[in-house]
Amino acid sequence: MLQEKLTVCRQRQLTADVFELTLQGKMATIAQQAGQFVDVLVPDQRYLLRRPFGITQVDAAKQQLTLIYRTVGQGTSILSQLKVGANLDTLGPLGNGFPTEFLQTKQHVLIIGGGTGIPPLYNLAQQLVARGVQVTSAIGFGTQKQIFYEAEFRALGAVHYATDDGSYGFHGHIGLLLDAEFATTHFDAIYACGPRGLLLAVNNRYREHPHAYISLESRMACGVGECYACVVPAEDQQALYKVCDDGPVFATGKVAI
């Protein structure tokens, strides 16, 4: 866990409102688990709370770390204006990523992502493919125009798309795609990140799976586990977990989404 001023080395627009930001610094050389996140201070004094983003890619040799974000509010809009050479005060890597240590070569995993939930899943897919694990992806978007990183995901294995309006791939919600395509397929692990509906769909379908994991979002203040802002109740309501410190990745059936 570092606090570091990272330098913007590339900023690229992927869709109408999604940007890819590549940052340089030592943080990229700290071993990280796919699914961990960074917490970025918006370079404007009016915004006090850091913005959390999943890590999309790490290149330790070049000391580069890539984020993908959607401009949804003031903080991300300011980030989208950053030019090469700008500094970004960043904490990371934070939280616990996706467990993968049990996977062996040739085993087969399913990655389920939607919208801006896919950045940490790309990092995961890359790491797994490098270890010889077979990756199949099911990815949902509202409409074809919103899709990004298609070639990148296709380079790592089979990819099935679902769009809400049917403009590309399967017509309908990702849960229906899972039922249509994968209801009977065995996977050694399931990994998901995306909007709440997607997480619910995965949580319900893979509750009993021994290695099914979902990554959650929550409004954060400290980002490091000391302020109790980001909590999520256990499914049995007997405990509260901190998304920043106990998560953001949880096994299915563990938390009330």
């Binding site: 004094q45 009016r46 915004y47 006090l48 709370l49 929550s218 409004r219 954060m220 203040a221 302020c227 109790y228 802002a229 980001c230 909590v231 999520v232």
Partner: peptide
């Protein structure tokens, strides 16, 4: 939750 929200400064 949500337990925190940002405001201007």
């Amino acid at each position: 939750t949500p337990r925190v929200a940002e405001t201007t400064s």
